[in-house]
Design a protein around this nucleic acid. Structure first.
Lengths: 120, 120
DNA sequence: GTTCATAGTGACAAAAGAGTCAGTATTGCA
DNA sequence: TGCAATACTGACTCTTTTGTCACTATGAAC
């Protein structure tokens, strides 16, 4: 079974999923939107200060293209745009949660037994 | 809270988790090892024919470095090496499962409502 | 008329990641 | 002697992703 999506081929639905969530800031953005919704760009920026605006916008565009988030533009000046998770996007909650859980557990193991290559 | 790991800084445990599972073939390798274990390199290659050997070895090395998998070398000729998930690696089961589940659901939505940019 | 706020785009440079190809080692066997 | 099998490594290129900088638009407030 081959899945065609956005001019690419995926051999498993898992690969397709990874193409949707794979992006430097995507999981972080989804995490933010799971905790508080809707959010404006400027609010996401405050929550993710290490991502620059250009990157955030690109990631938001891709998530929107994949219908993971919705974008609502208020016809006002200065602009006001709200992002929220779509119905499909909400299905990512278990993914984000399990990644967070794993991260916590992994962190505990490296704290107990610090990696020799790590620098404190 | 800043986590130092392998000469890099992580601001959340989620980012740390993503650094561990982020790699073209890592989720696929872990998926294989969750279904059948242990596996030899040549067996993983058969299960992931699109990954070339060099890439698989690199991903396996990184997973080993992060203590997600263990590598056992039999002292025989020709070489025999077995890979299996470590105790920590097994904690990734919910991550892989939730990604697969999401992938399946996502696939259904794009089948129902095909994306205009996709090519069949 | 200038400035502010917000959300955005274009063009490019830098870095990271992925992929390719050729080569190594060991031992047994024909 | 030469080949087969398995698990690698080195060196390189190519591609993709990420990051950076400068720039736009609009209407209100001063």
């Amino acid at each position: 079974m081959i899945i065609h999506y956005k001019d690419k081929q995926y051999f498993t639905s898992k690969d397709l999923a990874l193409s949707v969530i794979g992006g430097r800031w995507k999981i972080a953005i989804i995490w933010c939107l799971l905790h508080e919704t809707p959010l404006r760009l400027s609010e996401i920026q405050k929550k993710l200060p290490d991502a620059n605006q250009r990157m955030l916008i690109r990631q938001l565009r891709e998530l929107e293209e994949d219908k993971i988030i919705t974008r609502y533009v208020y016809p006002v000046v200065p602009p006001k745009v709200e992002y929220k998770l779509s119905e499909i996007g909400l299905l990512l909650e278990p993914v984000v949660t399990s990644i967070c859980d794993f991260g916590d557990q992994f962190m505990q193991t490296i704290e107990k037994e610090p990696d020799p290559t790590s620098v404190d």
